[in-house]
């Protein structure tokens, strides 16, 4: 029983991190209908910002940890907005394939720039938050896990509020539904798209720091695998669907954790892709996505 609970907590924190990344994929897809493959590398940059800022501040303090996290979020938001403005916007209105290929190019650019700037050797991530391991009834919970779950929950609720309860969030949903009609009510879609990139990238930045806390070594290619899994989570939930991305991420985090703890643990990483192929075959619109055929 406690074994099960333990895995549940592990799965929950992994799923929460996937959710933070998956939301960026799904929100950008919602407004622009393309997969921003560079998103996983923004996540990596977030971890590095957390690394540098964290080391400049007193380690092992709550405020130091939170400030590092805020810096990573702000830095990534700016990075995401700049990428969209300089790279994706000039291609808007053109064939989607061009943007997709450019996104892959952007991803490689960030990865190799990262190797140039940060070096390719993995680095140990500093303990920016207080470290403590709590134990009750045989259940071992690290402070880092608590932080992941608390911070991710706060951010997910904040996102939910922004998207469903604020004017700019409603505008985001309006643009996702019908960009032409959105312009006809006076929405500047450039502003909404920048906002969407900023928001998604900030979440990825927070995800990068939280991930680094629990898997404490970082390198410029660290975004690739979690990024792919978050992408699968977004597809699982129904890409473009915000609650779907969070649900997909939780499912994936749980499944992966439980497989890891079983005798099939070698296949842990294959699970995500098996799930991806399964959805594409049987429910291409995802769990919460609506089955609609692409309109031409």
């Amino acid at each position: 029983m406690s074994e099960f609970l333990q895995q549940l907590i592990n799965g929950l924190s992994l799923g929460a991190i996937y959710a933070l990344i998956a939301l960026g994929y799904t929100m950008v897809y919602g407004v622009l209908r393309f997969i921003n493959f560079a998103h996983s590398d923004v996540f990596m940059v977030g971890a590095f910002i957390g690394y540098y800022v964290g080391r400049a501040l007193p380690l092992g303090t709550v405020w130091g940890g939170l400030v590092s996290m805020a810096a990573a979020m702000a830095g990534c938001a700016v990075l995401g907005i700049v990428i969209e403005r300089l790279v994706y916007r000039p291609l808007r209105g053109g064939p989607t394939l061009n943007v997709l290929i450019t996104a892959i190019g952007m991803s490689l650019f960030l990865e190799y720039s990262g190797q140039l700037v940060f070096g390719a050797t993995p680095r140990a991530f500093p303990q920016i938050f207080p470290s403590k391991v709590m134990e009750f009834h045989g259940l071992i919970i690290s402070m880092n896990q608590v932080i992941v779950i608390v911070v991710a929950s706060v951010l997910l609720l904040g996102l939910e509020f922004t998207v469903f309860r604020t004017k700019i969030g409603t505008a985001m949903r309006a643009v996702a539904l019908n960009p032409g009609a959105a312009q006809l009510v006076g929405i500047n879609i450039d502003v909404v798209i920048s906002f969407t990139f900023g928001l998604g990238s900030a979440l990825a930045g927070a995800g990068g720091v939280l991930y680094a806390l629990n898997y404490p070594s970082i390198d410029p290619l660290m975004g690739v695998v979690p990024g792919l899994k978050a992408f699968v989570a977004a597809v699982l939930g129904g890409v473009g669907n915000i609650p779907g991305a969070a649900l997909g991420a939780m499912i994936l985090g749980m499944v992966e954790t439980f497989v890891d703890g079983s005798r099939w643990s070698t296949y842990k990483d294959a699970i995500a892709f098996t799930i991806l192929i399964g959805i594409l075959l049987f429910r291409p619109a995802g769990l919460l996505g609506r089955m609609t055929s692409e309109k031409v």
Binding site: K167, T170, A171, R173, A174, L177, N178, G180, A181, A182, Q183, L184, V185, G186, I187, N188, I189
Partner: peptide, 30 residues
């Protein structure tokens, strides 16, 4: 378009193009 709208021009497009997933209230707010 958003700047044209800001000058006081309203456009009720062909096929209505309401925001179908939003509530009536949210459509009016938009």
């Amino acid at each position: 378009a958003h700047a044209v709208v800001a000058r006081g021009l309203g456009h009720v497009p062909e096929g209505r193009m309401i925001f179908s997933n939003l509530t009536v209230d949210e459509n009016l707010a938009m």
